[in-house]
């Protein structure tokens, strides 16, 4: 017998697949936003005067960077309830993705801040700017400008990582594709379609980031 491809069996499920895409985009958008904030705070903590903040930030980053995401998400969903902290699948997924994205972003952002010459900071002080103003205008923004391409690559990886949260029963594109698979047994068709949907979403994200880069981070030409 030969395997006959039949994509038409998937047609009745297009609404579900579209919903899966929407859930994946939503999950990614929330986690990336939260991850960016966590990343900036962690990068700051790494430069802190207080040893405790530096150690806490490094420990967090090293644990997340050097263990698989699956273990992290299992720990949050199955492990924390033992300590009396319980999350719905979606909340657990967002927490895990944000922490993951935050740790990787922190490293990239720290690299950017390091690249900003110390003279910038001193110039800011000389101009009488407050530390927060210095950080916002002459450290964070130029730093973000340098690292934005690397950061957007990290964000697209976060989008792809969302496919793993189906393991804790959180609903998104992969879990919906798997459910359709168990109903239709059309594994290849469904995974080919899912792959193309992921590809489309990561391109949409990459494009969006390029637009942001152009609109927000380009130097004024005038």
């Amino acid at each position: 017998m030969t395997y006959q491809f039949d994509f038409s069996v998937l047609l009745p499920y297009w609404e579900q697949l579209l919903r899966g895409c929407w859930l994946t985009v939503l999950l990614s958008a929330i986690s990336i936003s939260a991850g960016l904030v966590i990343g900036i705070l962690t990068a700051l903590a790494k430069q802190s005067r207080f040893a405790a903040a530096r150690i806490a930030a490094s420990t967090y980053v090293e644990i997340i960077r050097n263990t698989p995401f699956l273990v992290q998400v299992f720990f949050i969903f199955f492990g924390l309830p033992a300590l009396g902290i319980s999350f719905q699948p979606w909340s657990a997924a967002i927490l895990a993705l944000s922490l993951n994205c935050g740790a990787f972003s922190a490293e990239v952002i720290r690299g950017g801040i390091d690249a900003i010459a110390r003279g910038q900071y001193e110039a800011g002080t000389a101009l009488g700017l407050k530390p927060l103003q210095i950080f916002r205008h002459i450290i964070l923004k130029p730093a973000l400008r340098i690292i934005f391409p690397a950061l957007s690559g990290q964000f697209v990886l976060t989008l792809l990582t969302t496919s793993i949260v189906s393991s804790i029963s959180a609903e998104e594109l992969t879990s919906i594709a798997q459910s359709i698979d168990t109903m239709t047994f059309r594994s290849f068709e469904i995974y080919i379609v899912a792959t193309i949907l992921y590809l489309t979403m990561s391109f949409a994200f990459a494009t969006l980031f390029k637009l942001i880069d152009r609109l927000y981070f380009s130097y004024p030409v005038k």
Partner: peptide, 19 residues
């Protein structure tokens, strides 16, 4: 590069192994 960086590794392995 775009194709393999733009799709989850899980899907790539699945397509190779069963495809």
């Amino acid at each position: 590069i775009d194709f393999f960086q733009g799709t989850p590794l899980l899907m790539q392995l699945f397509l190779v192994f069963y495809g």
